[in-house]
Design a protein around this nucleic acid. Structure first.
Length: 397
DNA sequence: TCTGGGGTCCTCATCCTT
DNA sequence: TCTGAAGGATGAGGACCC
């Protein structure tokens, strides 16, 4: 098969569709998945909700203003992850070259699948049929000669369709699109481009390269020019290992008490460490993120001598980083903990110099086993027991 | 107007090593 | 021994994506 052999499959309103499928009382109504509280945002909206102007990433307060009967459901990422895995298996039955780029999107290279399944366009239709019959969900598929064009094509195929961009129709397809449709162009870059007089892809391509490089930097300018010409050399690469594991939480009410802050840092470190151990990796660098009530956000990080997957150790570094910021009566809206510099294997603190196992590690692994057997809420750290709970974003409707 | 959570990638500054 | 350039590692911040 030659030419248009890259597929981009995008699930339609993924989280909302999974919720509506699994609970028929939610089907056919304006539905939003996300936090319903004062600081929540919409993560996914059903097409019935979108008819009112509700969009993902929109503050929940605003969404409710647009649609008073909007029903909110809290997200359940474990279920979405399981669904994503099932969908990936459908993709992999058509091609081994599947690159999941999020829970609900994937690129497929079907250049070797023609003999078995027909043209790329045929495969796109077959995938949609399989997803609908096996998973009872809808998706849209873009078919094109490269990833960038396939992604644009799937966006044009929404909802529930297939769009093919042929090699001889690339310019006609991309020229009228707004620059915001290009991969990597967000609000800031779009504003810079508008200042240069480019609102569409065709106008962007006509810009002098020097002016573009001056406004955006050499690399970004070269990247955008490539896309504006419809070219994209990136290959479909299955199974890229994660480079970061992070957890963060926005509080319903700003934090200021040191004991609350320390407890939340431990809670976040615990979430990160559980995932590190589950994936048999450890981290060399710990980063904290602090967002104040003003929305100003700071990060601080430190690289450790030994990689770790122990919550207690990550939390200790997080606390030290926080104390090092020397904040005077901070009002904290969000705290985050991230682990980077990931290496496979759980080395580091597993054995100490004197060869005695780390007691914290042993305790946390014991917790992992209990949680694995009886559920994630079956056991926890005493320090996180809800004596004086920090009010977190409500998980209910 | 009000801005979640989990990520990737890039730039720039600084420090250290060669 | 001192100095400067080059380059890698690290840290911080920001833009962007879904």
């Amino acid at each position: 098969m030659t030419g248009e052999t890259i597929l981009h499959v995008d699930m339609d309103a993924f989280y909302a569709s999974v919720e509506a499928r699994d609970d028929p009382t939610l089907a056919g109504i304006p539905l939003a998945v996300g936090g319903a509280g004062a600081r929540g945002v919409v993560m996914s909206a059903s097409y019935e909700a979108r008819a009112y102007g509700v969009r993902s990433a929109m503050p929940s307060v605003q969404a409710r203003r647009l649609c008073s009967e909007l029903v909110f459901v809290p997200p359940d990422f474990n279920r979405y992850q399981a669904e994503s895995k099932a969908i990936r298996e459908v993709f992999e039955s058509f091609s081994p070259l599947v690159e999941m780029i999020s829970l609900d999107e994937a690129f497929l290279d079907v250049s070797g699948a023609g003999r078995l399944f027909g043209s790329a366009e045929d495969i796109a239709h077959r995938i949609r049929e399989r997803i609908r019959s096996d998973r009872r969900l809808n998706c849209s598929v873009g078919v094109a000669p490269n990833k960038f064009l396939a992604k644009l094509a799937s966006a044009n195929a929404k909802p529930d369709g297939v769009v093919v961009v042929r090699a001889n129709g690339i310019r006609a397809f991309i020229d009228p699109l707004p620059v915001e449709d290009l991969w990597g162009v967000g609000e800031q870059t779009a504003t810079a481009l508008r200042r240069l007089g480019a609102r569409t892809v065709a106008e962007l391509r006509a810009l002098p390269r020097g002016a573009l490089a001056k406004a955006l930097g050499q690399n970004a300018a070269a990247h955008l020019m490539n896309l504006a010409e419809g070219s994209d050399e990136r290959r479909v690469t299955p199974h890229e290992p994660a480079k970061q594991v992070s957890a963060e939480n926005t509080f319903e009410r700003d934090l200021d008490a040191p004991e609350d802050i320390n407890r939340e840092l431990l809670r976040l470190a615990d979430r990160v460490a559980v995932r590190l151990r589950k994936n048999l990796i450890s981290a060399r660098t710990v980063t904290i993120k602090v967002r104040f009530s003003t929305f100003k956000t700071l990060t601080r990080s430190r690289t450790l001598e030994e990689p770790t997957a122990v919550a207690e150790k990550i939390a200790q570094v997080a606390r030290e980083l926080f104390e090092g910021m020397r904040l005077d009566r901070p009002r904290i809206r969000l705290l985050g903990v991230a682990a980077t510099g990931l290496i496979s294997g759980e080395g580091g603190e597993q054995l100490r110099i004197d060869d005695r196992p780390d007691p914290w590690r042993q305790a946390e692994e014991a917790l992992d086993r209990v949680r694995g057997r009886f559920g994630s809420s079956s056991a926890g750290r005493a320090a996180l027991a809800d004596r004086t709970p920090v009010r977190r974003r409500p998980r209910g409707r």
